[in-house]
Computed example of a mutant assay.
Amino acid sequence: MKYLAILLTALLSTFVNAATSPSCPGEEGYFYTNDRNTRNPSQGGFVSHDADISDNIWLGRNAAICGFSTVSNGARITGRAVICGDALVKGRKARVTGHAKVCGDARVDGSKNEVVLTGHYETFTGLYSSGTFTAKKKIKQQSNDEYIKEFLSAINKFSSVAYTFTEKTRKLKTASSYEAYQDNIKDSCEIVLTEIRKNKALRDGRVASWPKKFIKSRFNLRDIYIYNISVSGNHFDYDKFDMYQFSFDLKGDKPLEGFVKKQDPDGAWQNDKKHLKGYWLFSEKKSRLQKLHVLLSKAVKACN
């Protein structure tokens, strides 16, 4: 019964609903059945309708045979290996496993000697008839500009909060959001950062808010110094509530110039130019702050 059920499943997947696989994008096919002529058949991996295979191969459940490739004469394709293009893999001593990829017009011939392609090995040409071929996963190297853009994206989504503490209660004092962008096509490390600060307080279960403040400055990532994450001075042990913080400012004694726009108690806007004591970022969640700290550190390193 098990044999008949697996055969029926294979037939249905082949003729009724064409299967697809992310390993072979844009291709339709079916799922191979290993040992289909025995009492213990088992489901194998994806095979494209255009591929040419023989009944005596072994195809692992997560492996795939794509394109116009050919796999025959007892070859074994296991792990998450992919055969594609016009590649050929044949012979009982041929094995492609791991995350290996055999594509293009590459030839793997295990008719006489054992030949294994494993790890993250990829080939698109040549003949492989003996030996073991392996490679580590290729890690994509980010460009300096990508590191900077990754930090800008993160801080533009970041919100910072600060609290005041009275006896056994805490009150929300300010909440800040940020807008940052690159402003010099000749120097991607030059940044304009604006902190949008809104004063808030929690009263009778409702959040009251009043005058906004905009703090804007222009600086170069090459010139800033980043301080480590620490527990804020607003530390309240009673309910185990901690605020985490880190800051950054310019190296040495250079002041960080900022343009401050704020509302007075009457609602009128005032503009002022000030020397800032750096930018301070707060969060209840240390992990959020750690991620931002890492991204800023990488952006600064990319600029030096």
Score class of each variant (00 low, 15 high):
S130Y: 13
D35P: 01
H99G: 00
L296A: 03
R107G: 00
N228H: 10
I53E: 03
G104H: 03
V16T: 11
D105A: 11
S160C: 09
Y3K: 15
D249H: 13
G91T: 02
G91E: 03
G104T: 03
K186R: 09
G26N: 05
R203I: 14
N37Y: 15
F236Q: 11
L11R: 13
A81H: 03
F282R: 09
Q270I: 15
D109T: 03
Y32F: 15
E28W: 01
A208I: 11
V89I: 08
Y128Q: 00
S129L: 04
Y244R: 01
K2P: 00
R80I: 01
D242N: 14
F248E: 05
S54Q: 10
D145I: 15
D264C: 04
G45E: 06
W269L: 11
L117G: 00
Y178H: 10
F31L: 06
T97R: 04
S177D: 09
T169K: 13
N62V: 02
R288P: 00
T125K: 12
L250F: 08
S13K: 11
F246C: 05
N234C: 07
K173M: 10
V207E: 14
Q182C: 02
Y238E: 15
I196T: 07
A81N: 03
K298G: 12
K216G: 05
G45I: 06
D50A: 14
D50M: 09
N144A: 15
A94R: 02
Y181M: 12
T132V: 12
D145K: 15
S153C: 05
V231L: 08
K101P: 00
Y181N: 13
K137H: 04
C303H: 05
F15M: 07
I6Y: 08
H293Y: 14
N73A: 07
Q263E: 15
K90F: 10
D50F: 10
V260L: 09
L296G: 03
V102W: 00
Y163N: 07
K2D: 11
L7V: 04
R95N: 08
R218G: 02
A175C: 12
I83S: 01
D253H: 09
I229F: 04
M1T: 14
L7Y: 06
E257W: 14
W269N: 08
A94M: 02
D187L: 02
K216Q: 11
Q245M: 13
K140L: 11
A268K: 15
S188V: 08
Q290V: 12
Q245K: 11
F133W: 10
S69F: 04
V294C: 04
A51H: 01
L8M: 13
R80F: 13
R203N: 10
T70L: 04
G85C: 03
I215T: 15
C66F: 04
N34P: 06
I226K: 05
S23Y: 07
